Amino acid sequence: MNQPVPLGAFARIFHVQTAVQLAEAFRAHGLTQVQLNLSTFGFPTLPTEIEVSSPTLEGIRDDLVAAGLTLWGVSATFNTAHPDLSRRMDQTALAANFIARLGCTGAHAATLCSGSRDPGNMWGFHPDTTSESAWRDFRTSLDVLLPAAERSGVLLAIEPEPANTVADVDRALRLLRELGEDAHRIGFILDPANLITNVAPSDHKYTLERAFGELGDRAICVHAKDVVAWSSTLAGQGVVDYELVGRLHRDLASGVPLIIQDATPEELADVVKLLRTSIERSVA
Rank of each mutant, 00 (worst) to 15 (best):
E181Q: 08
A134G: 05
A96F: 08
D128N: 12
S152W: 01
L142N: 03
S75C: 07
E159A: 00
L175K: 10
E159Y: 01
D84W: 06
G153P: 01
A100V: 02
L94V: 12
V74R: 00
S141V: 00
R174V: 01
V65W: 05
T70K: 08
S116H: 01
L94K: 15
L69V: 05
D118K: 11
V74Y: 00
G153E: 03
A148V: 09
H126E: 09
A172G: 14
A148N: 11
W135P: 00
G73H: 03
F78W: 03
R177L: 09
G59D: 15
S133Y: 08
C113E: 09
A157E: 04
E150D: 10
G103P: 08
V166L: 11
N121I: 06
H82F: 05
A100G: 13
A163Q: 08
I60Y: 14
S75F: 04
S114V: 02
R171T: 15
L142S: 04
P119L: 06
A163Y: 04
H184V: 14
A163G: 03
F98D: 11
D137V: 00
D84E: 12
G120A: 11
A172T: 04
G73N: 02
R61I: 13
A76E: 01
F188K: 10
A107T: 13
T70F: 06
D118V: 08
N164L: 12
R174K: 14
F78P: 01
G59F: 13
